[in-house]
Amino acid sequence: MNVFDIIGPVMIGPSSSHTAGAVRLGRVVNKIMDGKQPEKVTITLSGSFARTYKGHGTDRAILAGILGYHSWDAEIRDALEIARERKLNYEFVCRDIPNAHPNTAAIHFLLPDGTEGEVVGASVGGGNIRVDEVNGLRVDFNGDCSTILVMHLDRPGVIADVTQLMRAKYPDANIANFRLSRKERGGESIMTIEIDGVATEGMAADLREVDNVINALLIKRV
């Protein structure tokens, strides 16, 4: 904790969990889409998000994040209008997600090239977030560090190939947290790799070249 955690953060009100954290969840989606603007997003609000989003502007906050705005940008207030202007088709659905944190949102996106994806995450208080799921696979990261998501096929040696490449090409990159999750044996899997310090953009591109890796994305601090 430092002094700016107490005299700060600078944020758009009214609530650190229902507004500022919601923006950050949207920003994770923005990063996963690689900054591209989707054609359509469907945002499922669960729990307290579903019940109080109007008064807290949670809908505007999530959309603003998807559009790439930060939790301190004044545009959050007008995010619905901005989305319409930019021809982003959005829909909010209120439905409780079983066993989810009270402030959970599931954000589904469709890109113009037909790519689809979904991110499920929670705003856990004080503007902090926890991302639980990407494209149906369990992940666990908070957006405070640089995070690399490696989507790959579950084959022997993939983790070793990935970490060896990181070791060889980026010797200063220290892995702070590593998590693996798969749908089924031999199926689609995802590595969540949180890195100390700043990860370079090239790392994700390099990891995409590893055998059996489908895609790799760098999510910088959101």
């Binding site: 700060g8 758009i12 959050i76």
Partner: peptide
């Protein structure tokens, strides 16, 4: 939904 400084909270 204006801009504020949480001090210590919103």
């Amino acid at each position: 939904m204006g801009k504020i400084v949480a001090a210590p909270t919103a």
